[in-house]
Computed example of a mutant assay.
Amino acid sequence: MDLTTTYMGMTLRSPLVPSASPLSEDIDNIKRMEDAGAAAVVMHSLFEEQITLERYELHHHLTYGTESFPEALTYFPEPANFRVGPEEYLNHIRKAKEKVGIPIIASLNGSSVGGWTDYARLIQQAGASAVELNIYYVPTDIELTSEQIEQTYINILQAVKAAVTIPVAVKLSPYFTNMANMAKRLDNAGADGLVLFNRFYQPDINLENLEVQPNVLLSTPQAMRLPLRWVAILYGRINASLAATSGIHNARDVLKMLMAGANITMLCSVLLREGINHIRCIEQEMRTWMEKHEYESVQLLQGSMSQKNCPDPSAFERSQYMKALQTYKPEWERMYESSYYLG
Rank of each mutant, 00 (worst) to 15 (best):
T245R: 05
S246C: 13
G247T: 08
G247S: 07
G247L: 07
G247Q: 10
G247R: 13
I248D: 10
H249N: 08
H249D: 01
N250P: 00
N250G: 05
A251W: 02
A251V: 05
R252G: 02
R252E: 07
D253K: 15
V254F: 00
L255I: 11
M257L: 13
M257V: 04
L258C: 01
L258I: 00
M259K: 15
M259W: 03
A260C: 07
A260Y: 01
G261V: 05
G261M: 06
G261N: 06
G261K: 02
A262S: 14
N263F: 00
N263T: 02
I264A: 13
T265M: 10
T265W: 00
M266D: 04
M266V: 06
M266Y: 01
L267Q: 06
L267C: 01
L267E: 04
L267W: 01
L267R: 03
C268H: 06
S269T: 14
S269P: 07
L271E: 01
L271V: 01
L272F: 08
L272N: 14
E274C: 01
E274P: 00
G275I: 01
I276S: 03
I276M: 08
N277Q: 10
N277L: 04
I279H: 13
I279E: 04
R280T: 08
R280K: 12
C281H: 03
I282L: 10
I282M: 11
E283Y: 04
E283W: 04
T288V: 11
W289Q: 08
M290D: 12
M290K: 10
K292G: 01
H293D: 11
E294D: 14
Y295E: 12
Y295M: 12
Y295R: 12
Y295C: 10
V298T: 15
Q299C: 05
Q299L: 09
L300T: 14
L301A: 12
Q302E: 14
G303D: 06
S304H: 08
S306L: 11
S306Y: 10
S306G: 08
Q307A: 13
Q307Y: 02
K308W: 01
K308N: 02
N309E: 10
P311C: 02
P313L: 14
S314P: 01
A315H: 06
A315T: 07
E317L: 15
E317Q: 14
R318A: 06
S319D: 03
S319H: 12
Q320L: 11
Y321G: 14
Y321W: 12
Y321S: 14
Y321H: 15
Y321F: 15
Y321L: 15
Y321C: 15
K323G: 02
K323P: 00
A324S: 08
A324I: 02
L325G: 09
Q326N: 06
Q326R: 09
Q326Y: 03
T327W: 00
Y328T: 12
K329H: 10
K329T: 09
K329E: 07
P330H: 14
E331C: 04
W332D: 13
